[in-house]
């Protein structure tokens, strides 16, 4: 088979002539730039990309990508994307959503898209606030968060996006931040890993809404603190963090604890295994307020058959067994009788 040579793309090829209209300083800009920059390296045809979104600030994303795209309705992007991928499994479908769109109004659809393992890449921009509707609390807002709709503080318990994705059987679960001034910028690597994964890939991105929830994730992105409050997950490697890489994570019976590498050998640290769902869940509960760094990188990655592949297989199998459907024959099936002239 002769390979048709791919055009050499650059980030510019994935831009549109439409003016980007996020607030100046919004974390979305960094994510958009990273996606535009990563796609040319993936060696996929540009016309095969479809970006799908729901409603919210993040969901304007498709309008800024020079690919095919659908800006859907609130929360329903996973269902639209499932229809696209089912209709043409050759397409590279990416889904951009937020904490409100993906985990509140669209939580149900996200559950089922992930559990079906439709080969779609999900970028969930988590800013712990409703931005487009001007500042109400979201399902990831922390308890007590004062917003326009919670003047006395939120009484909701927040959802953990990574725990959620693991719980609904996603086959690829990762986290990164929009920017990282501490030298741990894993966004491009995570995007590439998600693209390479055959199946539903769920990526939580800590994203700064500099208007309604500014600095919510500064602990994880700023130069002074990022290396102390985040830990990079690498398959088969020990969990080591800190500006001087002098701290590690260790199992202490059933709990995780921070230890100093001065006292503890690397071999005694917790080693990451991205095929272990129980470990992934434990890691998803680490929070900097409890003195534990928050993991970034790939929490969980396993292979399972994809929905659209099995859909196609069933059709092919059915054709192989029963022959190409003959409509005339189908109409004539069942008990028929003829009335003569």
């Amino acid at each position: 088979m002769t390979q048709i040579e791919l055009p050499k793309y650059s980030a510019k090829d994935f831009a549109t002539d439409q003016e980007v209209r996020w607030c100046p300083g919004c974390g979305d800009y960094a994510i958009l730039a990273a996606v535009r920059k990563v796609l040319p390296d993936l060696n996929h045809r540009k016309e095969n990309y479809v970006f799908v979104s729901g409603i919210g600030c993040s969901s304007r994303f498709p309008y800024y990508m020079g690919t095919y795209g659908v800006h859907g309705i609130h929360g329903r992007a996973p269902a639209i994307a499932t229809g696209i991928k089912s209709a043409n499994p050759n397409l590279d479908v990416w889904l951009v959503t937020g904490d409100g769109d993906g985990l509140s109004i669209g939580g149900n659809h996200l559950i089922h898209m992930l559990r079906r393992n439709v080969n779609i890449k999900v970028l969930l921009f988590n800013n712990r606030i409703y931005g487009l509707t001007k500042g109400q609390y979201s399902p990831t807002s922390l308890t007590g968060h004062r917003t326009k709709s919670t003047p006395l503080g939120s009484i909701d318990h927040p959802i953990h996006p990574i725990s959620f994705a693991l719980g609904v059987e996603a086959t690829f679960v990762a986290r990164c931040t929009d920017v990282n001034k501490g030298g741990l910028n894993v966004l491009p690597d995570v995007l590439k890993a998600a693209a390479d994964h055959r199946g539903s890939a769920f990526v939580e991105i800590y994203q700064d809404c500099n208007v309604f929830n500014h600095q919510a994730f500064f602990y994880a992105t700023e130069k002074d603190t990022a290396r102390e409050t985040t830990v990079l997950l690498e398959h088969g490697k020990p969990l080591i963090f800190g500006a001087n890489r002098d701290k590690g994570i260790r199992f202490n019976s059933t709990r995780l604890e921070v230890v100093s590498l001065e006292n503890v050998k690397e071999d005694d640290l917790l080693f990451h295994d991205e095929t272990d769902p129980a470990l992934a869940f434990l890691l998803s509960r680490m929070h900097h307020t409890q003195g534990l760094p928050e993991p970034v990188g790939v929490f969980y990655r396993v292979n399972k058959p994809c929905y659209e592949d099995m859909l196609t297989e069933q059709i092919e199998k059915s054709i192989a067994q029963r022959g190409e459907g003959d409509l005339e024959k189908l109409l004539n099936s069942g008990s028929t009788w003829t009335v003569s002239e």
């Binding site: 996973p78 269902a79 499932t82 229809g83 696209i84 089912s86 209709a87 149900n108």
Partner: peptide, 18 residues
């Protein structure tokens, strides 16, 4: 699909795809 809304949305996605 998982609900009625998903069903119409999947149809829209399939229609966009041809």
């Amino acid at each position: 699909m998982e609900d009625e809304i998903a069903a119409v949305c999947a149809a829209i996605g399939a229609s966009y795809t041809g």
